[in-house]
Design a protein around this nucleic acid. Structure first.
Length: 854
DNA sequence: CGGATCGAC
DNA sequence: CTATGTCGATCCG
């Protein structure tokens, strides 16, 4: 591509996060026109490191495009023809499965943060203002937007565009409260962020038809709507609040000023049916539009803030619609195919959620800008893009999207990152890293997650981003554990760069590779098995394993792993696997095996909890055996004992679970785009969980596993000899002798202080501070054979990791490191979620292992 | 699996 | 005076 230096006044300032899109400045209004805005931005930007990096990224995109075009030029007409056939077939199928029956609403508060701040500080009301800092703005009000001031723009540039701009800091806690509002309108609403949500009002509409007029009537009084006779359930929830005289939104909000109230006779709020403005009484009809109007009206009454909404048969369309008449408007796509098609026809693809800057540019290179183009070029696209991508395109071009609102499945990763002014001392960097790990550990604990892959993200002062990951053999979750992995990665990077220091402007830590359901149950039963978790902290944390620091190979290898591997292979395990180090080693050391041991270690980490996950019953006098038996009963539909009531309750719940699981499966397999709508909400502030305590499929699988467990575990082993004689012997690995110094004193201090050595097997605190001695003790405990049986079981039971649900993978492990596995799309069908497939999986797994050790 | 990239807010 | 964020998911090798 021609990438001449004439970045001259970047006519289209692509490459920047803030786009000019919406600033069509009306004549007569204060503000700037596009050209001026662009010019100012360029002046402020040009020559900065940031800009250089943007240019670089832009060029990379251009290269991708070039590559794609070249690929395109090599396509034969027969290829295209075949593609056309295939694509048409799929089009037909999709068309057949089109579902127009739902009423999906996307609600989006207008300039939310800014609106809140303006409401709470009237002085800001008519001035250009933005929420954020000199470094970055979260959003701006509509006055400021006329100057080109937009979200994701640094404040100092915004100031150049609009010298009078008031920048106020964000109060995320305040904004958070708004969520309660949404919940009043749909108990199952799906929040997307603090100010956005999806609702499925289909059921509501049905009920609404039978609703008498007075229950759709709202009066304005003192700035608040009052419903003459709200429906019982609504009443219960909102009545108390609606009757109070100050905004319910923020307990801490300043006094409410009546004059801040919006004018209710404003354009959009006119009700089609009966409107009696003179009395400030509004009667809303029974249609979807009226229902949504009512909802927005009530939101405004309650918060003094306006919202926009889109109504459509699916989530994708609803989202696009909500933007259409923003601010303070709504738009509906009728539930007819033709209406959808008309809407889609000229829709610029960039408006579609999931199509971002890059995709837009790539498609534009193919002459595609609207959904119609997308449709016409679908055969070509199927040849140039990945399956998931072009499937997505096809959906879009047909106006299809998710028709059910569901929280998506378990999250796949969790991370935290921070930007700061340059930090180049290694010491500070380690400190920072630790802090991040701490934050992350806190977040993880809120969701009770543990993961096996830790990723460190670094951005240097040139804005170059680098990520480095390391996968360890067992799941980690505590600050110590995460840090012990992260610091090694960091050290490696520092070492590589030395003698130059890393000049960082951002650091982040991410954890992924969460235990899947299978693992978790696994975990649980063992937890119960061992009956104690005290040792965990010690065992799992890097504390015990400082050797990992710099000897690349054995990083997280523990004696558990080594022992186990040795046992299975009948020979001592010399080398170990470590992703950071060498891929070859991974090949030579398939992880199928060792991981299980670590899984066990993990399990130790969990609290034994004898609360039945099905009926939630808990008995203090349960031992594991009784507990397992109970679970068995709860799960099996043929109650063999005791409490009939409980059992039937269990069954009910279980039914729900399977249903949920089915749905979820469908969602994943069918519509990738659901993923994009992932519920992320909480970004900055912690807490604010809105767990509505449903049993998700996650839980369900846990249940299944537990049952399997209890089937196959020997209960007696479980409880016996948990207090066995520790003897010292065995070797804990020469590795330990090589305890390298942590990269910084800071690190060293944290790593070695205050470890308490409690044996996870016998649960006795060891009177030693010598790691090697302690390790030997544990080894002995293990060798007592206590775990031997269990391990045997686990080997068979554990269906997971390296083989996942891919039968061929077992082979791949042997011959072929690459493990291509076409991992691309999950498209898994139901396989891994279906309990029935468990057996098959299991067998595959052990076969693979057997094969490997041949 | 690891790394880079994308998209959303 | 400086000064361009944070998160999760997915793609690609």
């Amino acid at each position: 591509m021609d990438q001449p230096e004439e970045k001259e006044i970047a006519p289209s300032n692509e490459g920047f996060q803030y786009r000019m899109g919406l600033n069509d400045n009306k004549a007569g209004m204060e503000g700037l026109d596009k050209e001026k805005i662009n010019k100012i931005i360029m002046e402020a930007t040009k020559g900065s490191k940031f800009y250089d990096n943007e240019l670089k990224k832009d060029q990379q995109v251009n290269q991708r495009i070039e590559k794609m075009l070249q690929q395109k030029s090599q396509l034969t007409s027969s290829q295209l023809k075949m593609a056309q056939v295939q694509v048409e077939k799929m089009t037909l199928e999709l068309e057949r499965s089109r579902d127009l029956s739902r009423f999906i609403v996307h609600v989006d508060m207008d300039a939310f943060y800014a609106a809140v701040e303006m409401r709470d500080n009237p002085e800001l009301k008519d001035k250009p203002m933005a929420v954020g800092s000199m470094s970055m703005l979260s959003t701006s009000n509509y006055v400021a937007r006329r100057f080109g001031v937009r979200a994701a723009m640094p404040g100092f540039i915004a100031k150049k565009l609009c010298p009078n701009l008031q920048i106020v800091p964000a109060n995320f806690d305040k904004y958070r409260a708004i969520r309660e509002i949404f919940s009043e309108y749909d108990p199952n609403f799906l929040p997307l962020s603090l100010d956005e949500a999806y609702l499925d009002i289909t059921d509501h509409l049905e009920e609404r038809l039978t609703r008498p007029e007075d229950r759709r009537t709202f009066t304005v009084k003192n700035g608040h709507a009052e419903n003459g006779d709200p429906p019982a359930e609504v009443k219960a929830k909102c009545e108390p609040e609606e009757t109070c005289t100050s905004p319910v939104l923020f307990e801490d909000s300043p006094t409410f000023l009546p004059d801040q109230c919006h004018d209710f006779s404003r354009q959009d709020l006119k009700c089609e049916n009966q409107e009696r403005p003179q009395e400030n009484v509004f009667v809303f009809g029974t249609s979807a539009e009226e229902a949504v109007r009512e909802m927005r009206f009530r939101i405004e009454q309650k918060t003094t803030l306006t919202a926009s909404a889109g109504i459509a048969p699916n989530m994708m369309l609803a989202k696009v619609c909500s933007d259409k008449n923003k601010p303070n408007g709504q738009y509906i796509i009728l539930h007819e195919r033709q209406a959808v098609m008309d809407f889609i026809k000229d829709l610029p693809i960039r408006k579609v959620p999931g199509i971002g800057k890059v995709t837009e540019k790539m498609l534009r290179a193919l002459g595609i800008t609207t959904c119609t183009d997308l449709y016409q070029q679908r055969a070509l696209l199927s040849l140039l893009f990945s399956d998931t991508s072009w499937h997505n395109f096809l959906h879009i071009s047909l106006g299809l999207g998710s028709t059910r609102i569901e929280r998506d499945g378990e999250r796949k990763s969790m991370s935290t990152e921070r930007t700061f002014s340059e930090i180049s001392s290694a010491e500070e960097q380690y400190e920072l890293c630790r802090e991040l790990c701490k934050d992350l550990a806190e977040d993880l604990s809120k969701e009770g997650l543990k993961g096996r892959t830790v990723t460190l993200k670094l951005k240097n002062v040139k804005f170059e981003v680098k990520t480095r990951a390391s996968t360890v053999s067992y799941a980690v979750s505590t600050e110590e554990e995460i840090f012990s992995v992260a610091k090694d990665i960091l050290k490696a990077e520092i070492d590589v760069a030395s003698p130059e220091p890393l000049r960082l402007r951002l650091m982040g830590v991410r954890i992924s590779g969460f235990l899947c359901e299978d693992d978790k149950k696994h975990q649980k039963s063992i937890t119960s098995f061992l009956g104690s978790n005290k040792a965990v902290k010690t065992m799992c944390s890097g504390t015990v394993d400082p050797k990992a620091t710099q000897n690349p190979a054995p990083q997280r290898e523990s004696f558990f792993n080594q022992k186990r591997a040795a046992r299975l292979q009948g020979l001592e395990q010399g080398s170990t696997s470590n992703a950071v180090t060498s891929k070859e080693q991974n090949v030579a050391h398939p992880s199928s095996e060792p991981q299980q041991d670590f899984t066990e270690v993990d399990q130790i980490c969990q609290d034994p909890d004898f609360t039945c996950p099905i009926c939630m019953m808990k008995k203090s006098d349960w031992n594991l055996e009784a507990f397992n038996r109970h679970i068995d009963q709860c799960l099996s539909k043929s109650p063999t004992s005791g409490n009939g009531e409980i059992l039937s309750k269990c069954e009910d719940v279980f039914e729900n679970c399977s249903d949920k699981a089915k749905k979820s499966n469908k969602g994943v397999g069918k519509d990738v785009r659901i993923k994009n709508l992932k519920n992320k909400m909480v970004t900055l502030a912690p807490s604010d969980d809105m767990d509505d305590f449903v049993i998700d499929n996650n839980t369900m699988h846990t249940l299944h596993d537990q049952r399997v467990k209890s089937d196959s575990c020997r209960d007696k082993i479980i409880c016996e000899n948990s207090m066995e004689n520790p003897q010292v012997e065995g070797d804990v690995g020469g590795n330990n002798t090589d305890v390298s110094k942590p990269a910084s004193s800071l690190c060293s201090a944290t790593c070695s202080e205050g470890a308490v050595f409690i044996c996870p097997v016998c649960n006795i605190q060891q009177d030693t501070s010598d790691l090697a001695v302690f390790n030997r003790h544990v080894d002995v405990c293990l060798n007592n054979g206590i775990l031997e049986e269990l391990k045997g079981q686990n080997t068979n039971l554990d269906p997971k990791h390296p083989v996942r649900n891919d039968p061929q993978n077992g082979m791949a492990v042997r011959g072929n490191a690459g493990n291509k596995s076409n991992a691309r799309s999950k498209r898994p069908g139901a396989a891994q979620q279906n309990p029935a497939s468990k057996k098959a999986k299991t067998q595959r797994s052990s076969l693979t292992i057997d094969a490997f050790f041949k």
